[in-house]
Amino acid sequence: MLDQSAYASKLLERSGMAECKPYVTPMEEWLKLTKASTAAKVDATLYRSIVGGLRYLVHTRPDIVFVVGYVSRVMEDPREDHWAAVKRLLRYVKGIVDQGIVFPKTYASRLQLTVFSDADMAGDIDGRRSTSGGKAAPKRLPAVVL
């Protein structure tokens, strides 16, 4: 099993969310963040530090890849509504802090890795770009089968 439970706990402490109530979803449904937000500014250094920590956490938590990428778009000028989305994600992390990626012992000849992705077509309010649930592999690489 690969997990980052100690790192996730430290990230929650650093953000002041160690004692928060956990959520079962990482993001509000239909959340749309924009760089043109008129909400109050927040501490950009803290925002970048926490989002950077979440970017490291996705190595063992692929279920938060989409949200971390989404909140990363506004790192140059974070606002209260952006910080609220990060706090929601941290509450989700609080609920999954002890989870990770499990590679079960198998006696089969081959272990097959199956990956799913979701997309939001032209969902970016600022640039009308599409959003993917994960980073695509280069096209020259074959599908991963172990």
Results as ranks from 00 to 15, higher is better:
Ser9Trp: 15
Leu11Asp: 15
Leu11Tyr: 15
Leu12Gln: 13
Leu12Lys: 12
Glu13Met: 15
Arg14Gly: 12
Arg14Glu: 13
Arg14Pro: 02
Gly16Ile: 07
Met17Asn: 09
Met17Cys: 09
Met17Trp: 07
Met17Leu: 11
Ala18Phe: 05
Ala18Tyr: 00
Glu19Ser: 08
Cys20Asn: 01
Cys20Gln: 00
Tyr23Asn: 13
Val24Lys: 04
Val24Pro: 00
Pro26His: 10
Glu28Asn: 00
Trp30Gln: 09
Leu31His: 10
Leu31Pro: 11
Lys32His: 02
Leu33Val: 07
Leu33Tyr: 03
Leu33Ile: 04
Thr34Ser: 15
Ser37Trp: 04
Ala39Glu: 15
Lys41Pro: 00
Val42Pro: 02
Tyr47Gly: 12
Val51Ile: 06
Gly52Thr: 13
Gly53Met: 13
Leu54Phe: 06
Arg55Glu: 06
Pro62Arg: 03
Pro62Phe: 08
Ile64His: 08
Ile64Cys: 08
Val65Ala: 13
Phe66Asp: 02
Val68His: 05
Val71Ser: 01
Ser72Asp: 12
Arg73Leu: 11
Arg73Phe: 06
Arg73Trp: 10
Glu76Ser: 14
Glu76Ile: 12
Glu76Gln: 14
Asp77Ile: 00
Asp77Met: 00
Arg79Gly: 01
Arg79Ala: 05
Asp81His: 02
Asp81Glu: 07
His82Ala: 15
Ala84Trp: 02
Ala84Lys: 11
Ala85Ser: 06
Val86Asn: 01
Leu90Tyr: 07
Leu90Trp: 10
Leu90Ile: 07
Arg91Gln: 09
Tyr92Trp: 08
Val93Asn: 08
Lys94Ser: 06
Lys94Val: 02
Gly95Pro: 02
Val97Tyr: 01
Asp98Tyr: 11
Gly100Asp: 13
Gly100Thr: 14
Ile101Val: 15
Ile101Asn: 14
Pro104Ile: 10
Lys105Ala: 11
Tyr107Thr: 13
Leu111Arg: 13
Leu113His: 02
Thr114Glu: 02
Thr114Val: 03
Phe116His: 05
Phe116Asp: 06
Ser117Thr: 14
Asp118Phe: 10
Asp120Gly: 15
Gly123Cys: 04
Gly123Trp: 10
Asp124Asn: 14
Ile125Glu: 14
Asp126Leu: 09
Asp126Val: 07
Arg129Gly: 01
Arg129Phe: 01
Arg129Cys: 02
Ser130Lys: 10
Thr131Pro: 03
